[in-house]
Design a protein around this nucleic acid. Structure first.
Lengths: 201, 201, 201, 201
DNA sequence: CATGAATGAGGTTTCATTCAT
DNA sequence: AATGAATGAAACCTCATTCAT
């Protein structure tokens, strides 16, 4: 029944909160259980172990990310505008989900086991999507063709990850979206785009 | 006298190796002690505790990085060439020191306490140096002036960190320096440099 | 339900035995656990830490002391007889509980932290009771009025504590109750009581 | 040479200070060494081990106690006056040596090994002396003859020890000698002395 | 299915003592 | 004789996981 799903959700939600505050090692099952209003043992009915619970977080969140991203990209035309929108959305998303940001960027992204996980694969729709936009840009002639599309993607994600990571480590004391335009410019230029002309808005 | 320094070095060296393989929580003092050929208690004569030993690693390594970087920049003229060389050296350094790379980029860079450490401050010479080169580039007119120099630096370090991080997480299965030229181009363009003309070599 | 209380009791009982033989520092949690037939970790489900377990001993035993003392004082009339009975009971109690005696008199009574403990407060019923008897004796005119009742109480408890302490340190090689009558006389005289006339039995 | 004796003295002095603040378990050889301005290893040239050093403290101090006590008793006539003087001196001594008081009364007196020590025997001169005074009192007819002289001595030492112990545990917040007269009275009466008539001063 | 008490392995750290210099 | 660096044993405590109810 849906009781089971509901309960699983509340455990994941509690896990997001707890792992978002402390790191993996310092988070305890008992605190998650308490926050989820279930007994410790119950968690082991839904998740194999602590790590399994940990990695089920991005599974959940990456779907949320994809779903909403798609909505935001609706109706936008031209690779350049799409990239700009993606950059904005990326920064916007982590502004709204700093706890998940800490978990994903400061912990998981950095763990050896993560790459082997199904959770890791759940990012494929997003990363594939970006690749498509880049190709579209090359077809439109607004993205340079002399560099591998994978490297171009690495440029985009690298800069964004770095920005969010720095912001998280600074304890979110400033507005992440403030630098959105500048980043946009840099990335655009790196990609060989004529950012100014195609700029969104 | 030098016996003491020698012993401290061998402990740090062992720590670099062990912390490079496992993460902080999973590394044990006893393994470090064994690798350094000292008793566990001896470590506590040189370091206050496990964390103190951990953070003494970048203190050590960042000096090595600075020292050698300086040699490599000797005699190079022009901001563009200097940046190119820096990019190459950065990738080269972590190719040679993957264990330290894991410790620094996958663990420390991401730990809240790290920023408060003296170890963190030991990177200042390098990051300050980059800023100087960027300014030099602006004076030469090869670096764009419409973006803050701090953002430009973030572009460079962000991309490099991201590349090395991905490489480390892939378990170093490919040659990091392979993509040196491409990265160079991207960063150059991002910075507004005429990379082709000033390209090193 | 009662399983939990039972288990807590068996841990305290084991603690009384172990702390009674060795001192606090030399007693180990593992020995207590073994004696109580529980795992070491279980102890930490019932007590915050080693010290908490230690101080829970007098909490337990002082209630036993009070409860039985009350029974023994039932039906006894006159302050002098009550004091005599108290003296006897005090010596009797520690004759039966030498391990607890060692813990209480040779360790706790002498520890700075103990005074701040709730355990310390658990003696109040007994010490308050003695004060009442002394006042009663002053009203009856059998206890001197020229000395503070607190000093009189210190006389009684001081002599008794000293006796039991010496006995414990001699490794209980003689009969503590043997000297009961003599002590009685001394205390009575110190208090200004006509011990001979009112003597119990 | 006297250099050796001097050095031993400074170690004992440092030990008195350190053991007087912390208890045996919490005092460290390294702190004592530092306070004595010697290396840790040096202590082991003068004392077999930590316990040996610990027990050498009363050896030192009990001689000081005896020596000065004898001076104070010089010229005093009558057992009653001598006892009174002893009571005063006892309280006076620990007022001047609270650190040693803590070590002796809160720690050693309570340790099983202490009784087996030579240090313990060093109190004999004092305790024997008291016995002599009590006998003298019985000959003079001012001390009751119906109670063992050992019990009488226990009365005296018991009350005094108890007083000093309570004072030490209260962190010496009041004047120990304040209650000297009252204690005197109690003990005198307990001993069957006519305290009022023979009172010192 | 839910519970939560019980488990016990395992690591950090301290510090008395030794011993080569 | 003095040093003080090195030693290593030993113990508390935490917490993920299990399992009987």
């Amino acid at each position: 029944m849906s009781k089971r799903i509901e309960r699983k959700q509340s455990i994941i939600q509690a896990a997001i909160e707890v792992f978002g505050e402390k790191n993996f090692a310092n988070s305890t099952i008992s605190e998650i259980a308490e926050k989820a209003n279930v007994a410790e043992g119950t968690i082991y009915q839904y998740f194999k172990n602590k790590e399994d619970l940990f990695f089920s977080i991005p599974l959940e969140k990456s779907m949320e990310f994809s779903r909403e991203l798609e909505l935001h990209l609706q109706g936008i035309r031209g690779a350049s505008n799409k990239i700009s929108k993606f950059i904005w959305y990326y920064l916007h998303f982590f502004t709204k989900n700093p706890g998940y940001g800490r978990t994903l960027l400061l912990e998981m992204r950095v763990s050896k086991n993560f790459v082997k996980t199904t959770a890791y694969k759940s990012f494929r729709p997003v990363t594939d999507g970006i690749l498509e936009i880049i190709k579209e840009g090359q077809r439109e002639g607004v993205v340079r063709g002399d560099v591998s599309i994978y490297i171009v993607r690495q440029l985009i994600l690298g800069v964004l990850e770095h920005m969010v990571t720095r912001w998280l480590l600074s304890e979110e004391r400033y507005d992440l979206l403030e630098h959105c335009d500048e980043v946009n410019k840099l990335i655009m230029d790196g990609m060989g785009m004529k950012a100014d002309l195609n700029q969104l808005r």
